[in-house]
Amino acid sequence: MSSSNSQGETKALLDTGVVSTAAAGGANFFNQAAQTIQQAQKEGPLTFRILGFLGGLAMIVSNGLAILERFFSFSFARSLMAVYGVIFGVIIVFMDAPFPIICSQKIQTGIHSYAKFLDYTWGRGLFFFFVGTLQVSNVNMLDWAVGGFMIFVGVVAMGVGMATANQMRLVRFAVKDESTLKQKWKEHDANGDGSLDVKELTAFVNDAGVTMTRNEIAAFYLALDKNFDQRIAYEEFYAWWTRESDHSSRVV
């Protein structure tokens, strides 16, 4: 009897520990997100990627609540729609988180291998628009607000993709040869790690005589960061710069 009680107490302690760990991890995640977004706000208008990230979080919360509500009201078909909403929200969060998430690089690689259109800003915009329309199909104010927000972000992203294509061509033509590219890269690679972060890429673009908005820089970054490590390696930039076909810069 005492052995059974002991096992029960141990299981309860383990369950409590798991819940506490999960809660602490969640709190840390949201705290990091808040700090990152607050810092981004100080630097200028939030980009479509950060807005998408916020929308993804909102989708997880709103659809998570909807799952509970609809399940207990035996509305299983609508519960399934909410499950899809949570899944889409999680995908968006992993794609557009402004800071590293555990296994995010591996997960993003998997997502993009099955959905190549998400490599492009216009494709991401279409995805945002699609999930937004799913969200507004629900009949409550919260879903309408979240869905409308995602539709807005989707339209912005599609517009940014088209505008950035022209700016990318200007950058390509401004850097005349490989020696110039290497020189400018070295000048703007502040820490000498062979890659550029967002600020360094912005300085590189400005030095090339091209002015891009924060949204256009975000789209440029998305087009070049092929391994999703949130940095642009010289090899990634060089591969884009030397590509004979111009398909990648017509639409991003």
Rank of each mutant, 00 (worst) to 15 (best):
V156R: 13
K176Q: 13
R172V: 12
Y114K: 12
E200H: 09
N140P: 01
F128D: 03
L142M: 09
F129A: 12
I217N: 06
V153S: 00
V198T: 12
N140C: 02
A157I: 08
A174R: 12
I111W: 08
A190K: 15
Q167N: 10
F130G: 05
D177S: 14
A165M: 12
V156P: 14
F117W: 07
G194H: 09
A218L: 01
E216I: 08
D207H: 11
Y114E: 15
T109A: 13
G154M: 02
E216W: 06
W185N: 06
M141P: 12
F130R: 02
Q167T: 05
L201S: 09
K199Q: 13
G209T: 11
I217M: 04
T109N: 11
L134G: 00
H112M: 11
A157Q: 06
D177A: 08
M158W: 00
H188T: 10
D177E: 08
I151M: 02
R124W: 10
A219T: 07
F117P: 14
F173Q: 15
D197R: 04
G148D: 03
G192Q: 02
T164F: 03
S179W: 03
M168D: 02
W144G: 03
W185M: 04
E187D: 12
Q167M: 09
T213I: 02
A157K: 04
M150P: 01
K116R: 14
T164P: 10
R214Q: 07
N206Q: 09
A190Y: 11
A190E: 05
T164M: 05
V153Q: 10
G194C: 03
A208Q: 10
G161W: 00
T213P: 09
L170V: 10
T121H: 06
W144E: 08
R214I: 03
F129E: 06
F149E: 01
M150H: 06
V160C: 07
K176G: 14
N140E: 06
N140W: 02
L196D: 04
K176S: 11
L196Y: 01
S113N: 13
